[in-house]
């Protein structure tokens, strides 16, 4: 395949030139590729959908990692569901946390990413604070919710699309179990699609999360290769102070950290919760 054509939408599609194919695997129902593109660096695709590119992954990973961790302010334990490419882990480990548990369904994804997308994890998989669990993310939160195991301050769901292996991570049961895996002030964030093209997705999540969190909302950022404008991230917590963390507090925290971010900053943190009207009204109609 000399060109990759995304298959998300019938009437429009983005096309990438494949400059060098690094990795390709096709199992019975799954087709994964990692290739180089002159404009975007290394690109990973799954089942005809762009998952991540070296050029713009920073926006996505910074916004899912730093927003909840800094809003919470005292994070010690983080849970990442999915995120096999390691980019989320890399960003989370920039914080002085005690432990991060990452639950990935397939060890092969981690191994493949370390080999073919090395800049994503950038050594993060060697960090002693990591507890890597190879398991189904849904089963993991279900079992943890029903156990006496330690809970988490932040849970990040870095999943694939709802059509495909990530389907259960968008179910109401998942949100309920995730909630039960959070400490009192804990925050759940999830990737939630591009509502300009996938309005149903943000509405489904709004409905399914609503019963389980006192504060359920969305924030957003534009990730160029998740074509269609803003991507939304779902936010669920019973910690009503998390949303109103002041710019001064954020600035002070950022000064003590060395996040070296390229998208996230204190201003973006606050601004990201302001939703464009088409997204705000879609959520309101859910």
């Amino acid at each position: 395949m000399k060109h990759f054509k995304e298959t998300l939408y019938d009437a429009v599609c983005q096309e990438y030139r494949v400059d060098k194919l690094y990795f390709e695997s096709k199992t019975e129902h799954q087709h994964l590729m990692i290739f180089h593109n002159a404009q975007l660096g290394r690109v990973m695709t799954l089942d005809g959908v762009v998952q991540t590119t070296e050029a713009d992954e920073f926006i996505y990973h910074e916004m899912l990692a730093h927003v909840p961790i800094l809003a919470h302010g005292k994070v010690k334990r983080v849970l990442i569901i999915g995120g096999g490419d390691g980019g989320m882990l890399r960003e989370v480990l920039k914080h002085p946390i005690e432990q991060v548990t990452q639950v990935e369904i397939d060890q092969a994804v981690v191994d493949m990413a370390i080999e073919h997308l090395p800049n994503h994890s950038a050594g993060a998989y060697d960090d002693p604070r990591l507890n890597l669990v190879i398991a189904n993310g849904f089963d993991f939160v279900k079992n943890t919710a029903n156990s006496r195991d330690s809970k988490f301050d932040v849970i990040i769901s870095d999943s694939t699309d709802p059509i495909g292996p990530g389907e259960v991570l968008f179910s109401e049961d998942f949100y309920a179990y995730a909630k039960a895996c959070l400490n009192d002030n804990g925050i759940l964030v999830t990737q939630n699609g591009v509502p300009f093209f996938q309005e149903d997705e943000v509405q489904n999540t709004a409905r399914r999360m609503q019963p389980h969190f006192k504060d359920r909302r969305f924030y957003c950022a534009p990730i160029p290769t998740y074509y269609g404008g803003f991507m939304t991230f779902a936010w669920g917590t019973d910690n009503l102070n998390a949303i109103s963390v002041s710019p001064e507090t954020l600035e002070k925290q950022l000064e003590q950290l060395n996040l070296a971010t390229r998208y996230y900053n204190a201003g973006i943190h606050q601004a990201a919760f302001a939703l464009p009207e088409y997204i705000r009204s879609a959520v309101a109609r859910a």
Partner: peptide
């Protein structure tokens, strides 16, 4: 059918 699509996947035929 899904079976027919699996055959196409063998040859990496794009869904497009």
């Amino acid at each position: 059918s899904a079976g027919e699509m699996d055959l196409l996947l063998e040859h990496k035929v794009s869904g497009r």
